[in-house]
Design a protein around this nucleic acid. Structure first.
Lengths: 113, 113
DNA sequence: TTGACATGCAACCATTTGGTTGCCTATAAA
DNA sequence: TTTATAGGCAACCAAATGGTTGCATGTCAA
């Protein structure tokens, strides 16, 4: 509803704070549309614990899901991560920004030669 | 000691999970080298609570500090945030990467004209 | 229809987290 | 040498977090 505010950031940052949840995002990134059962594999915890993590990822809008028959498919949503990277992290990222600026300047300089 | 591993990521992500700590980083970004007392101003919590947050930021290597007389000056360290942005978030950031690649290609194309 | 499978829901538990208060130490200033 | 200021340390507390177990529900297949 409300456009991106700091509260949304908070949910995303907190969702990303747990290594198991980051691993789930990794695995969804490797193969999108996995079921809850598939996400459970390789994680040393019960299915219910995984379901809770997934719920937190969904609340942060990092994962969306779709019920298909008796299965629930999960899809990663890169938008909130993008938003954080662009609006928050890039503030602290002088090196990257400067490197990009330098690259642009260098190449534009070449263009004018 | 050990180069950047996932355990380091974990400390950084968890340090970033708290809104008060992100605010402290914001404020250090706005003006570097603040004392503990200065960092306390405007935060609705005791100095001791702020000191704990600072300790967490220091353990995550996001902030370094230097004792100067009876004051302790705090400095933001952008390296871990850079590292996360580049190694972890950019994986999910197709748009940004593509935009950067496009820019590079465009400008290099100009250079060859 | 009956059984197996995928998921949901709720109660419960231990540990971590974010905060407090109280007191101590060190340095600067009067 | 007092006194005020900046910070450190430790005990304590409530709430959030990450996990469990037990059971219920919905759907596919034999």
């Amino acid at each position: 509803m409300v456009p991106y505010k700091d509260m949304d950031d908070d949910a995303v940052f907190r969702a990303l704070a747990d290594a198991s949840r980051r691993q789930m995002l990794d695995r969804l990134h490797a193969r999108n549309g996995q079921t809850l059962g598939e996400l459970c594999q390789g994680l040393a915890m019960t299915r219910q614990a995984v379901a809770k993590h997934v719920a937190i990822l969904e609340e942060a809008n990092l994962v969306s899901s779709e019920r298909q028959g008796r299965e629930k498919l999960h899809f990663i949503n890169p938008v909130p991560i993008n938003a954080i990277a662009q609006r928050w992290i890039s503030k602290f990222e002088r090196q990257h920004l400067n490197a990009l600026a330098d690259l642009k300047e260098t190449l534009e300089g070449k263009g004018r030669n």
